[in-house]
Write a protein that binds this DNA or RNA. Structure first.
Lengths: 221, 221
DNA sequence: CTAGATTTCAAACAAATGTTTATAACTGGA
DNA sequence: TCCAGTTATAAACATTTGTTTGAAATCTAG
């Protein structure tokens, strides 16, 4: 039991430190000392710092993808060969994300990690996530495609990333933004509040009119 | 002349390296060797690595804020005491951003740097940008407020950051996304194309209906 | 209880980092 | 020409980094 305890204590400490300061800015010594664990334990249990980073992600993404796949299964079963409405797809994604770290209060850590995965250099991380979890994203985008048949493929591709940016950017910078919001508007915002606010925005964005010039050849304004 | 040449060579090299790999992941030795400049030159001309990072940002943000302020002056003069339409404000912001690095092909570098400013730890950078360039953002948000009087203040605050996330996230990850888009949709996307695609999306997002439960006390779905 | 495997630990290692120093080279005005 | 003042350079400095080592401690199965 004690050996497993070391592993989880490392993971618990590493994930909050990574989320706070990034990967390169977090040293193994900072992690191990705060986790009250010997320095060599990381290399013993994980092999390298890179592998530790990947393990931190796997602990969130594994349960998420499993849950998300199951939820999509149910949706598909319910709608048969009809297209699943966009709102339902977005809700399903949101609740799958929200449910994963429900036990801990670490949703914000999860989102911050996702933001870092995109923004930090760490080429190995992007490769790892793509190879390990790319399929669920592919499945999701295929369903989104059926839900928005009026959009050209490339336009939908870009809009999905616009919205991904909204979510990741806002939620991963939540702490700083929340401080401002509390000071200026005297309201305390939870992650769930933000998700509620995001939904109508994302739907409206996905359904915005397609500029005419995009349907044909590109043209100057 | 030669002394100034060293400074700009350092800045030119540092900005692309920072944009590619982040700040902590870019060493002074990498910068100086690629810039064909002595290692000590950075500390001599800039004082420290932190100051170099700030100088890289200042070289973009100084001309941007000046141009943006001028553009807002013109808009205000034209519209008098009427509210400036949302579309005009967004267009003005976009063109101010686009015009700054027009001489070089470094708009993508600029956006990537902005993304890093938010996502990387580098507390000193956020503080520096806030103190040095916060006023222009304040002015802009005040105008956005007049353009969207139907939005509650806090809702507008969050939506602005949703949209900021879309822009920074997409444009700062442009290279990777462009590769996918070219492979899958056989289209080469320029930054200007993306800005054209972003405009209707951002407008629709800002004008999305406000959920009823946000007007009063928060309530479960 | 004991032998073998697993885990912990302190110490050391090599490499890389930002910064400083002392000296040399260069610059432009008297 | 000569000499302050500025800039360039090589070398060294003190830290910090991820990783490895070998012995001690702990656990586990027979």
């Amino acid at each position: 039991m004690a050996q497993n305890d070391t592993v989880t204590r490392i993971l618990d400490t590493a994930e909050v430190l990574f989320a706070e300061r990034g990967f390169a800015e977090t040293s193994l010594r900072t992690i191990t000392s705060k986790a009250k664990v010997n320095l060599a334990a990381v290399n013993y249990h994980f092999g390298s710092k890179k592998s530790l980073i990947q393990a931190v992600f796997a602990r969130y993404l594994d349960p998420f993808t499993e849950r998300f796949h199951r939820a999509l299964d149910e949706l598909e079963a319910h709608y048969g060969d009809q297209a699943i409405p966009l709102e339902r797809l977005l809700e399903t994604m949101a609740s799958s994300v929200l449910e994963v770290p429900a036990e801990r209060n670490s949703l914000k850590v999860f989102m911050r990690l996702l933001g870092l995965a995109y923004s930090q250099a760490q080429g190995h991380l992007r490769r790892y996530i793509q190879e390990e979890y790319g399929s669920v994203f592919t499945r999701f985008t295929a369903l989104i495609r059926q839900a928005t048949p009026e959009l050209p493929d490339s336009e939908r591709f870009w809009r999905l990333h616009f919205m991904l940016g909204s979510v990741i950017f806002t939620l991963s910078g939540l702490d700083a933004l929340r401080d401002i919001a509390e000071k200026d508007y005297a309201e305390h915002v939870t992650v769930r509040d933000l998700v509620r606010r995001l939904r109508p925005v994302v739907v409206a964005a996905m359904q915005a009119p397609v500029p005419a010039h995009l349907s044909y050849a590109s043209q100057e304004v």
